[in-house]
Nucleic acid binder design. Structure first.
Lengths: 236, 236
DNA sequence: GCTTCATATTCATCGGATCAATTGGAGCCC
DNA sequence: GGGCTCCAATTGATCCGATGAATATGAAGC
């Protein structure tokens, strides 16, 4: 194994073992390099790799710090994966998102704070007013859509589940989905489905919430690939 | 944005746009650095970040290549996330794994090749023979357990789903689960649950497969946190 | 035709130099 | 004294050049 890989693993182990805790500052490059027995440039490449994994964070003139290491932070590189497989794999990502979002929405039904239920309704109001204008500002709809799903996921009681859902569809994927809705009817259908999920959450009905959430994502899947089975049942 | 981040994004864009395709060789460091207008060391840090994301791969003496970019490859950094949250978040990861594995097992029921159904049975035979010995070789059980779940996930027909499941429980997490089974009865129960999943798959019964898979992971969850709700229903 | 080996190519690692951002304190003004 | 300004130290960011190590390539020899 190369020197850099060894350095990466050493730092990882220092974190897993608790020697380095979230938010803690690392020794200065020169010292840490010496401690690990590598050159400064080599250490920098190791640090750069950990920065890419959102494990470390540097601030010029200040120092290098361990991040919060929260699942939401560490899992957010996944959205890039979704973006790369924009064409071939979008359906597969959506399928996973459907499974997870259905569960998360059901879980959220029991624990959604009333204040956030109201906020959820406001998001829908704003989305509907945007959709009523012409031409439709798809950028705004994408942002509101993301907020809608993120707010629900954040209340599922499972930070890992929320993080995975959040990153399952990258920004590019989500933008493409909405851009594909040139048909105003598709936009209206999406908003109706969102309303249905909202009503189920208002009623604290987990099963209704689950079904509406699943149907909503499934609708998106089908609109992407022309109602073929998104699971790959076809043998193409 | 720093020079390195710019270089990373530029290479990413070259991949997303298709200018760089999977398996393709990148220009030599010197040329690529010049092309991007950065020093060679700077480019190396950008490349190192993309290596950490499993997007690039270098071979000393040969060159730098774009990886296959398969979801399974790109998502496998996730297992490190699971390892970091070994204590606090293991239950949350397992919950997500339960949701996904139940679905994947159900999906696999219809498309499992007969040959691999037989292999699945052999894995169980070997696991039972290992469990029958004393002292129990937990390392072997962990490996067989991983193979068992991986084989099922690989036949769900969705590469993204399979990859996420595969990485939802890191090696460390899985090892800890089995090490925690000092009680031989717990090992036997796990093997019985695996058998139940196998029988359901043999019968091509998706619903039975789903239920047994979910029950199996749920059992692991409960054994980890003493039958409290793993979703965080308690207000600790 | 095959193996062996020298050589070129390419990434890996190193050490040092300079630039840029942040911090912290000294000094100054009100 | 309190607050502000500015300078110097600290620290990461970027660059440069050199050497080492692994691989590929092609020539030489059998």
């Amino acid at each position: 194994m190369g020197v850099i890989e060894t350095a990466i693993d050493t730092i990882k182990q220092m974190i897993i073992s608790g020697e380095l805790r979230p938010g803690q500052k690392l020794p200065v490059e020169k010292d840490l390099a010496e401690q690990l027995g590598v050159a400064r440039n080599t250490l920098r490449e190791a640090v750069r790799a950990l920065i890419a994994m959102r494990v470390l964070q540097t601030r010029q003139g200040d120092g290098t710090y361990v991040t919060s290491l929260s699942p939401g932070l560490l899992l957010d590189g996944m959205s890039f994966v979704a973006d790369i497989h924009l064409d071939a794999g979008a359906g597969e990502f959506l399928h996973v998102r459907r499974i997870l979002e259905a569960e998360a929405t059901a879980l959220a039904a029991a624990r959604f704070p009333d204040a956030d239920l109201a906020r959820l309704g406001e998001l829908l109001d704003r989305a509907e007013s945007v959709a009523a204008q012409s031409p439709i500002d798809h950028e705004k709809l994408v942002a509101l859509d993301q907020d809608f799903h993120a707010l629900i996921a954040s209340h599922c009681g499972n930070a890992v589940l929320a993080a995975v859902i959040q990153n399952m569809s990258g920004r590019t994927v989500r933008a493409r989905i909405w851009r594909g809705m040139s048909d105003p009817e598709a936009v209206q259908r999406t908003l109706r489905e969102h309303r249905a999920v909202h009503r189920a959450l208002l009623a604290r009905d987990a099963e209704r919430a689950r079904i509406h959430a699943a149907a909503h994502v499934l609708g998106v899947e089908e609109s992407l690939n022309g109602s073929r089975s998104p699971a790959g049942d076809d043998d193409e």
